[in-house]
Amino acid sequence: MVLRRFDVHKVTSVAEAVALRQRYGEDAAVYAGGTELLLAMKLGVARWPHLIDIKPIAALRTLAVTKDLVRIGATVTHWDLERDPAVANVLPVFARLEANVANVRVRAAGTLAGNLAFAEPHADPPALLVALGARVILEGPTGTRNLLVSDLLTGMYQTAIAPDEVIVAIEIPLPARDVRMAYVKFQVLERPSVGVAAVATVRDGKFVGPPAIVIGSVDEVPRAVPAAELAGALAGDPRTAEALAEAASAAVDPSDDLAGSAEYKRHVVGVFVRRALGQLMAGAA
């Protein structure tokens, strides 16, 4: 499919990118990997006469692991993330998730920031990022602000990013050493049908505080499962798994689509919550 005419503006600073966002408004989109943007443009569902290419901005290529967090620059690709030894060391579940995003070509070009900015509901990273309390750092004309991923994603292809803002990084706070996590997904099409992220601390077989269970790809945005009453519950008890699976099936609001009927999706959500919990406990020390 041939693309309609547009101009690519290669920028070398965030300030320049923000200035172009201000100048062109809705007529411009931020461009990095293009894996979602160019698809939408080819399909004709979106058209931007101006693309702001942020790849030349050196500062956005940084992937840093500090003692408190993983900071992922806006042009860091899935390919980079799945190969980074420091990320694999501190967040092995996230590294494995990244290694299973889409396919190798999408990972080679696509960025995590682009994945979030596009807000495609059927995506792997958002559920785990929400469960981990990750934040997105945005820069605009009046300065920097940061949003929880759960606040960034507001609907299907909808985000809280202002028209004059640019994502500069994603920050994932590093969990304490004894925090366990899991991400499991069900996928028959090109994109996940259901993804379940689980993050919890288990001591003496019991949850310390409530487990964070987040369902991705089912609703328009990742759905956190209310689990306050499971603080202190026996993590390996089948009744706990059952309660969580039921809570998850009730928490999501699926619709019928190519990935299945709403009823089917509720069922699969329950199954995958139990599997996520199983993985969480299998990693038990």
Binding site: M1, V8, G34, T35, L38, L39, K42, W79, A102, N103, V104, R105, V106, A108, A109, E190
Partner: peptide, 26 residues
């Protein structure tokens, strides 16, 4: 497929496989 799903258009860009159907020539 023209949607980065099938891989028929795979070329290597600096050694990395990319979908040439969804990569700008520039």
């Amino acid at each position: 497929c023209d949607t980065q799903v099938c891989g028929a258009c795979t070329v290597l860009l600096d050694g990395r496989p990319v979908s040439s159907c969804t990569t700008l020539a520039i």
